[in-house]
């Protein structure tokens, strides 16, 4: 694993992105991500000399408000999810006992 010097960064990103990675994939991603991030850095450099506000919404227009009602209820058990007594059931602590 010594081929990439930024494995700690990759571990942090994978944790934030909640993606479990195999060692091989971690190495590949490490190589790619470091290269791409380097390439994207040009943007930060370009913006340094710009005295403008960020543009988050391309038209700088106001959004509208919803003032009507249209029923769009759906039946949850039609989705590919596990349902028990109407509740969606998800794994939590796996039966393992962990103290808080």
């Amino acid at each position: 694993m010594s081929e990439c010097r930024h494995l700690d960064l990759i571990d942090k990103l994978a944790d934030l992105a909640k993606i479990t990675l195999s060692d091989e994939e971690k190495l590949n991603l490490c190589r790619d991500i470091v290269r791409i991030a380097e390439y994207l850095r040009a943007v930060g450099e370009a913006a340094r000399d710009l005295n403008v506000d960020p543009l988050y919404y391309v038209w700088d227009k106001w959004g509208f408000l919803r003032d009507y009602n249209r029923d769009r209820f759906i039946i949850i058990s039609n989705l590919p999810t596990k349902v028990k007594d109407g509740y969606v059931i998800v794994p939590w602590r796996g039966g393992k006992i962990e103290e808080g």
Binding site: V88, V90, P91
Partner: peptide
């Protein structure tokens, strides 16, 4: 077991 130990979470 609550939030600490429950094997499953049921969500509404």
């Amino acid at each position: 077991g609550g939030i600490v130990r429950s094997p499953y979470a049921l969500v509404d």
